[in-house]
Structure formats: C-alpha cells, structure tokens
C-alpha cells in the first residue's frame, strides 16, 4: 500500500506491473487515471494548478487506502496524485488496486476515487478566458462518496 504526491508525470503501465510483480496471488488489477479536460462548467480551460496541504495530504490518502483495505479483500493499492500546473490531456491522478478476484479490485478502485475526491486536501485552480478561478466542489462528488 503506497501513496505518492508528486509534480512529475506517472506511467500507469509501469506502476501496474510493479504493483503486481512480486505477488502471484494477484488475479485482478483495476486502475483509474484522471485527466485534465479542456472544458469545465461551460468555460474553456487552458491550464489547471493543483495545490495541496503538505503534511496532511499523505496522511489523508493513507487513511483512505487503509479504509479500502478494511472494506475490500485487496492485495495491494497505489495512489499517485500530481500537484503543480497541468494542461489539458495531462494525467492528474492514478489509482491501482490488485486483488485475487475482479470484484474487489473494481469496487476498491472506485471507492478510493470517490473518497479521494471528497476527503483528500487538494484544490484546483483553473485558467479560463475570464481569468483564474478556484474550482467549486460538486454535490455529485459528495453523493458518490456517500454511496459507500
């Protein structure tokens, strides 16, 4: 189980291979990659700056991963979240879960993303033609997390 907060890009394939390499008990790998879109709330987005709360972010992510481990029968999990300024098509976040069977990998992957969206201290500021603006939290994200 690991979490990383980094400015650098990540390679989902490399991370996936690494996560399951040493574990012959893995029968399923589920992964999610979040990507910067060029449109949000009807405004075109030229770039996105992600900031976080150093010191708390890693702890919050570790707590979310620990909760996933309690709720689902998983072998391992990795969360990588980028910070800094990103452009449309750039990768933002990576979640990978390994398990013996696909159900737990799928469920835990979705759970991790839903909880991350509402509990991990990251904030997005986007550049639009009208200037920079902080992204507003969405009620649909709260609803998604509440399902679990």
């Amino acid at each position: 189980m690991a979490v990383r907060v980094q400015a650098e890009d990540f390679d989902a394939g490399v991370e996936m291979a690494r996560l399951r390499a040493a574990d012959p008990g893995v029968g399923a790998v589920a992964a999610f990659v979040g990507v910067v879109r060029d449109l949000n709330d009807d405004a075109s987005v030229s770039s996105l700056t992600l900031e976080h709360y150093p010191g708390m972010t890693e702890k919050a992510l570790e707590a979310i991963v620990a909760e996933a481990r309690e709720r689902f029968d998983i072998r391992d999990a990795l969360v990588v979240h980028r910070i800094g300024t990103l452009a449309p098509t750039d990768q933002i976040v990576l979640v990978i879960v390994t398990s013996a069977h696909r159900g737990d990998a799928f469920d835990a992957c979705r759970f991790l993303m839903d909880y991350l969206k509402t509990r991990a201290p990251f904030w997005k500021k986007e550049q639009t033609p009208a200037g920079a603006r902080w992204v507003e939290a969405r009620a649909s994200d709260d609803d998604a997390a509440a399902r679990w």
Binding site: A120, W123, K124, A137
Partner: peptide, 10 residues
C-alpha cells in the same frame, strides 16, 4: 489549525 475550503482534487 488549518482552514480548508471544500476539496476539489482527483
């Protein structure tokens, strides 16, 4: 003590 607006990561 930190004050956090609603988070918008991911």
């Amino acid at each position: 003590v930190a004050l956090l607006p609603p988070v918008t990561g991911g």
